[in-house]
Amino acid sequence: MNWKKVAIAAGVGAVAGYAVKQQFSSNQNVTPEKALKIAKEAFKKQGPISGSWIYMKPEELNKNGINYDVYRGGISKNQDGETSQFEFYIDTETGTIVDVAETSA
């Protein structure tokens, strides 16, 4: 028996097993912390923010007939002496901002 071939086969098997495990693991590639960072960076492009929050548990959102697993969060901004609050939804798989709406303070 050639031990070199056995070692190579075991290595290839381990790599293939790891790849399959990653493929079938949870679809949530974006953590809530990363989702909040994405939202804050997007909102900062339009001026400073004064506060932010995010729910740690994903929710389901139906937008235009498509279901998304999303994180829901919020951003507060001071604009012209008034506080504006926005609610956002970020796809847990891609990190894409799916929806933003201004809420009443």
Score class of each variant (00 low, 15 high):
Phe43Asn: 02
Thr96Ile: 10
Ala9Ile: 13
Lys44Tyr: 04
Lys37Ala: 10
Pro48Asn: 15
Phe43Tyr: 08
Asn29Ile: 11
Gly81Gln: 10
Gly73Trp: 01
Asp80Tyr: 08
Ser52Met: 01
Lys63Val: 08
Asp69Ser: 07
Arg72Asp: 00
Glu102Cys: 12
Lys5Asn: 15
Ala42Leu: 05
Tyr55Ser: 01
Gln46Ser: 14
Ile38Asn: 01
Thr92Tyr: 02
Gly51His: 08
Glu102Asp: 10
Ile75Thr: 00
Ala16Asp: 10
Asp99Trp: 15
Ser84Gln: 13
Phe43Glu: 05
Glu33Gly: 12
Asn27Val: 09
Gln22Asn: 14
Lys57Leu: 06
Phe88Arg: 02
Phe86Val: 03
Thr31Lys: 07
Gly73Pro: 05
Ala19Cys: 13
Thr31Arg: 03
Val15Arg: 04
Phe43Val: 00
Lys57Pro: 01
Val30Trp: 06
Gly74Val: 05
Glu82Met: 11
Ile8Gly: 06
Ser25His: 10
Glu41Gly: 05
Thr31Cys: 04
Ala16Glu: 11
Ile38Ala: 03
Gln28Ala: 09
Pro48Asp: 15
Val70Phe: 00
Arg72Tyr: 04
Phe43Pro: 01
Tyr71Gly: 01
Glu33Val: 12
Trp3Asn: 14
Asn29Met: 13
Tyr89Asn: 02
Gly17Pro: 12
Gly65Val: 07
Glu33Cys: 06
Ser52Val: 04
Gly81Asp: 15
Tyr55Gln: 07
Glu93Trp: 03
Ser50Gln: 09
Ile38Gln: 04
Asp80Arg: 04
Leu36Thr: 01
Lys5Gln: 15
Tyr68Leu: 05
Phe88Ala: 02
Thr83Ile: 14
Ile54Gln: 03
Glu82Asp: 13
Ile97Met: 01
Gly81Glu: 13
Ala14Ser: 15
Thr96Val: 12
Asn62Glu: 14
Ala19Gly: 13
Thr92Asp: 02
Glu60Asn: 08
Gly81Trp: 07
Ala19His: 10
Lys4Arg: 14
Val6Arg: 11
Gly13Tyr: 03
Val6Asp: 12
Ile8Pro: 05
Glu60His: 08
Glu41Ser: 10
Met56Lys: 15
Gly73Leu: 03
Lys34Val: 03
Lys63Ser: 03
Thr31Glu: 00
Pro32Tyr: 02
Gln23Val: 11
Gly95Val: 00
Gly17Asp: 10
Val70His: 00
Tyr68Thr: 00
Phe88Asp: 04
Trp53Leu: 04
Gly73Glu: 01
Ser84Asn: 13
Val100Asn: 06
Tyr89Glu: 02
Gln28Asp: 04
Gln46Cys: 05
Val100Trp: 06
Val6Ser: 12
Leu61Phe: 10
Ile8Ser: 08
Lys45Gln: 14
Thr92Val: 15
Glu41Lys: 07
Ile90Tyr: 03
Gly51Tyr: 07
Lys40Gly: 03
Gly17Arg: 06
Phe88His: 02
Gln85Tyr: 14
Asp91Val: 00
Phe88Asn: 04
Ile66Trp: 07
Arg72Met: 06
Glu87Asp: 09
Glu82Ala: 12
Tyr89His: 09
Lys37Cys: 00
Ile54Lys: 05
Thr92Gly: 01
Lys21Gln: 13
Arg72Leu: 05
Asn78Arg: 11
Gly13Ala: 15
Ser84Thr: 07
Asp99Arg: 15
Tyr68His: 08
Lys77Glu: 09
Thr92Ile: 09
